[in-house]
Nucleic acid binder design. Structure first.
Lengths: 218, 218
DNA sequence: CGAACACTTGACTAGAGTCAATGTGTGTGG
DNA sequence: CCACACACATTGACTCTAGTCAAGTGTTCG
């Protein structure tokens, strides 16, 4: 697995893909956190989904030009890059691979749909709880949790951008989650104290994550 | 074009695909309006995107089991159905077709991402204006507009479910759009009075629609 | 040490939700 | 043909969730 120790180093805040550009390669996040995000006209940021180690960052760029959303590093990390040309050859040689990447795109879309529901119809507390649940399940699937804890090096501003809330309100909701004995976020680490309770609070059902979560069950 | 006059008739409110099911065919909406939608635990509905004539309703069902979201008819309409088995044969015979359906899935995802931004970071007035802009551009692409008017047989409740707002507030925002000389919705018809103004109000840029909008430009 | 940054707190505001009553069609069936 | 029911739209009064503003408190790092 020499490839895994290679890859380009990225710093917190780096833009891996800029909305409006035509990328010439697809990348895989090897380490660290990133987010796909869009900008409103007033400059407000909205994260559309978190990208965790193992996720393709910009599969869309292969068929959609220009790209509609940016990918930004939320922590230091590492990415592997695969030029579109090489990717195309790979797909021609292994047609079944196309199906599995197509499916990857569908799971991505499914996550985006859940996020529409999250920001559209859930309360502030539910949104935060939901995002924590999703992140926990996805990290568990790639072995990045220990018991009910995981590294979560994002600022409260990032959580606000993911949930469509203000930083101040995110702060208060995190305090409420702690006070309710559900979960705490401290020093870049999340610790879940009551997993069933957190899921219920966040109206979370992992079905929409498909294989990404199933891998954990296996 | 005999196929176009065929297809199954659906009534307003019919559920074409139910979240949690394993569908055995993909369908194309031939006529009428539908929405992909999800349910929050408190029973609140959130539409994730509108489906217009020519759109695939449940391409996801081909590779994702069970389906994460429902498709519900928002007006009377007609759908054509293609069994998964036949679809699979089609893709094997014409591998390039898979790429174009994959791209279709990506455009779907792009629309869902824009909706995350819409409900997450835009004001009520912007959300309504944005949805009207998107619908106008997509309908124009399939020849279902005349000048700046189009049929829009949805209730204000549907608009509320699409934007994450309450019906009452949607009603007030529609009045504001009219008062501002931007657009009116009456008797199931939308009439845009100031197209540049409506786009600006809704922070709308059609880039994220890709080919669906481009077809109109051609 | 001080600058920069993230987090926290309190006081106030405002945008959107809720509730309830009233309109307005559109059918339907007696 | 009218009475009624039903769904959808509209209005006003009130509430409340979340946003804004501003002032602190840490804490990391040159």
């Amino acid at each position: 697995m020499r490839a895994l120790s290679a890859g380009k180093i990225v710093a917190k805040g780096d833009i891996l893909t800029r909305a409006g550009d035509a990328a010439n390669c697809c990348s895989v996040l090897l380490e660290g956190f990133a987010a796909r995000s869009k900008l409103a006209s007033d400059g407000e940021v909205q994260h559309i989904s978190f990208l965790l180690p193992g996720d393709m960052c910009d599969l869309d760029s292969f068929l959609l030009v220009p790209i509609d959303s940016s990918v930004v590093a939320l922590s230091a990390g590492r990415v592997a890059q695969l030029p579109h040309e090489a990717f195309r050859r790979l797909l021609v040689q292994h047609p079944r691979l196309a199906l599995s990447f197509w499916r990857e795109t569908m799971v991505d879309a499914s996550i985006a749909r859940e996020w529409v529901l999250n920001v559209g119809r859930r309360t502030a507390l539910q949104r935060i709880a939901h995002v924590l649940c999703e992140t926990y399940v996805r990290l568990r699937a790639v072995g990045l949790t220990k018991s009910l804890c995981f590294d979560f090096p994002l600022s409260q501003q990032d959580l606000a951008d993911a949930t469509g809330l203000s930083v101040v309100h995110v702060n208060r909701m995190l305090q409420r989650l702690k006070r309710n004995g559900l979960a705490t976020l401290n020093m870049g680490k999340v610790s879940i104290s009551n997993w069933p309770g957190l899921q219920e609070t966040g109206d979370f059902d992992q079905g929409y994550l498909y294989a990404r979560a199933m891998a954990a069950a296996a």
